[in-house]
Amino acid sequence: MGAIFRRELNAFFTSAVAYIFLGVFYLLSGFFFINSSIAGKTADMSGAFASAFLVLIFLIPLMTMKLFSEEKKQRTEQGLLTAPIGISSIVLGKYFATLVLYTIGISIFLVYALILEFFGSVEWTMVLANFVALWFLGAAFIAVTLFISSLTENQIIAAIVGFISLMVLYLIDSIATMIPVEFISKILTDLSFYSKYNEFVSGLFNLSSVLFFLSTAVLFNFLTARVFEKRRWS
């Protein structure tokens, strides 16, 4: 796992991916931060955290799109799958490399909080709770889009399908209200990532939501490993 983790992290920084992700994320989150906290003259960062959700829907598929699709296209996965390592090491190596880049990205929120500290007193428990929620949300999103990348060998398709999937997760509440059957709309609402994340933003730390994000991440990493297994057997 270590070898793949290091290689992927290196590859992020030797290609443009890391710089595009970090640059765009800093730009957009900075814009929302200034717009809501600085311009609103408040030490409350919930506005910036709330808008991060939408930014991630666009940016996370960009990070993960080529991780598996390119391996398949360039036939490099053959090298990985015939090396004396398990499939889980391959999947987790890539997953954690992405997670590290993601963590570097969202750490900017802690910098924003420090900036606010100059102007007033920041509610640090609130900021940290929000930060943890954002981290777990991203952990789940990365697993979902990595899984999508493992299904195709075209990275553009992986990016678009990943984006659409995250968009559906974002809009699931609105979709739920359109469905007249009550128990289906209930299930959909329960699956809503956005309302769960919004609870944190509005100041409610809900452990079950953290577990929900975490189990999504585990589930999709497991599915990605299954995709590889299945390909071997078909």
Binding site: R7, A11, T14, Q74, R75, E77, Q78, G79, T82
Partner: peptide, 14 residues
């Protein structure tokens, strides 16, 4: 086993 597949599994950006 050391394996050289038909298309060598090279990461071309490295």
């Amino acid at each position: 086993i050391g394996y050289l597949p038909e298309i060598p599994p090279l990461y071309v950006d490295m």
